[in-house]
Design a protein around this nucleic acid. Structure first.
Length: 414
RNA sequence: CGGAGUGUAGUAUAGUGGUAGUAUAAAUGCUUUGGGAGCAUUAGGUCCGAGUUCGAUUCUCGGCACUCCGACCA
């Protein structure tokens, strides 16, 4: 893409009403726009990163057999009454409205109940199980206090997946597969080394157990205790001698860290389906409740966590597989047509979708500063000076390392 | 939901009970072209409402918005 065609602009200064690093940089670089407290729009660059994250997540979910759907945002009160989760006393993040005829509707803050209700139309027999479905859907939650930029919002994009199984064994088997799939996701987006599967209380969803995926991050809202050797962690809320010993470890194995919850998985057992009336007939014609487990990844939250974790004093640093573009092609204006010709040639050759081509009528300093702020992994600098040597300059955004390369060597990057 | 704070130009900030200043962004022209260029010219602002006052951007009250701390957090 030509940078001159990008409608967003970078900003020199951070907005005064944002204190978090993620929101300051994402706004300055033109990835997101703040609509109101806890509500952000995705701009072209931010949308590209989100799509890259979604692509990775999709691949991992499909690999374990999940089918993608998208459920409605408007939700039926009656569905939630079945599990006694319609009232504001039970669920304090509801946004609600009413129809013209006076009936209540809810705005989806979660989809366990609606999807279980929906699956009653499709699951009747053990032949219909297991079923795995996932979606990328905006959740609306009336948080009492939005904070930390896009880490904690009132509207945010979440990937949620649901597994419907005939037996506890199948359910647990999928739970394990999903855990691996989740770790693959975090590895692929660049957070593998600092993301830990974390034991946590079941919380509101279930009194059985749950696991969180926690990424070490100063802006995170959770305190976790990490066992680096075993690559596991325990949330502070259940961290004690007894819990740790049940896991076959001792308190001395763990160290305290701040972390952001980027994923969450939990098992409802048969409880949810019993409440909702989702039963199937087994081989002997006996009616049994379906086992349900649920799996979430905060997609837009990840955007913020990636910025928090990797940014430096010059701006954002995107990991390779989520970056909005592979290359940032920077043309240094000189008045010599050869420079522009060379830049145009590289732009076309490398693939316009892979390259953000800074063709703006701007000075070198401004282009360099913007490129560092936007954080694309590699910057390729085309200038009169470099052309005289028959070379291009390749800068690694993360390390700051600069290499003089030949044009052919660029191919390895895309 | 409890506590605290802040609202001045597109953005970031200064200041004042009596004509509101700077930087940056924007527009025009000229010069410039490797780390957010220079000169000149132009345009642009006190969150909303009420009160006190001869006069309020400034003081008081209310509203709205935003931020922070805590509680909550699926």
């Amino acid at each position: 893409m030509r940078q001159s065609q990008l409608f967003t602009k970078t900003r020199r200064e951070a907005p005064s009403d944002e204190t978090s690093k993620n929101a300051q940089l994402l706004i300055r670089a033109g990835f997101i726009n703040k609509e109101m407290a806890g509500v952000y729009s995705l701009l072209p660059l931010g949308f590209k990163v989100v799509n890259n994250i979604k692509k990775i997540v999709s691949e991992e979910m499909e690999r374990i057999g999940s089918e993608e759907i998208i459920m409605s945002t408007l939700q039926n009160k009656e569905t939630w009454k079945k599990t006694d989760r319609w009232s504001d006393e039970k669920v304090d993040v509801w946004f609600k409205s009413e129809l013209k005829n006076g009936n209540d509707v809810g705005f989806g803050w979660s989809h366990e109940e609606p999807i279980t209700e929906m699956m009653k139309s499709f699951i009747a027999s053990y032949n219909d199980l297991p079923r795995y479905v996932h979606q990328f859907q905006n959740k609306l939650r009336n948080e009492v206090r939005a904070k930390s930029g896009i880490i904690r919002c009132r509207e945010f994009l979440m990937k949620d997946m649901y597994a419907f199984c005939a037996t506890d064994e199948d359910n647990m088997d999928f739970y394990k597969k999903s855990t691996n799939a989740y770790m693959n996701v975090f590895k692929r987006i660049g957070l593998g080394d600092i993301t830990f599967i974390t034991s946590a209380s079941g919380g509101f969803f279930t009194d059985k157990f749950s696991h969180e995926f926690q990424t070490i991050c100063e802006t995170g809202e959770d305190i976790i205790y990490i066992n680096k050797e075993k690559k596991v962690a325990v949330n502070k809320e259940i961290y004690n001698k007894e819990t740790v010993e049940k896991m076959g470890m001792v308190l001395e194995d763990f160290g305290e860290k701040k972390a952001a919850e980027v994923g969450n998985i939990f098992n409802f057992g048969t409880g949810k389906c019993e409440q909702m009336g989702l039963y199937f007939s087994d081989k002997d014609g006996v009616k049994k409740p379906v086992h349900l487990s649920s799996y979430g990844i905060g997609i837009t939250r990840l955007l913020g966590v990636l910025v928090e974790v990797f940014a430096d004093d010059k701006g954002i640093v995107w990991p390779e597989f989520v970056a909005p573009f592979k290359l940032h092609l920077i043309e240094i204006l000189s008045g010599k047509p050869e420079v522009k010709e060379k830049a145009e040639k590289i732009y076309k050759k490398m693939g316009e979708a892979n390259v953000l081509y800074d063709d703006r009528d701007a000075r070198a300093g401004e282009k360099f500063a913007d490129a560092d702020l936007i954080g694309i992994p590699y910057q390729v600098i085309v200038s009169e000076k470099n052309l005289l040597e028959g070379k291009l300059e390749l800068k690694n955004r993360k390390t700051g390392e600069i290499k003089m390369i030949k044009e052919d060597e660029l191919q390895d990057l895309c």
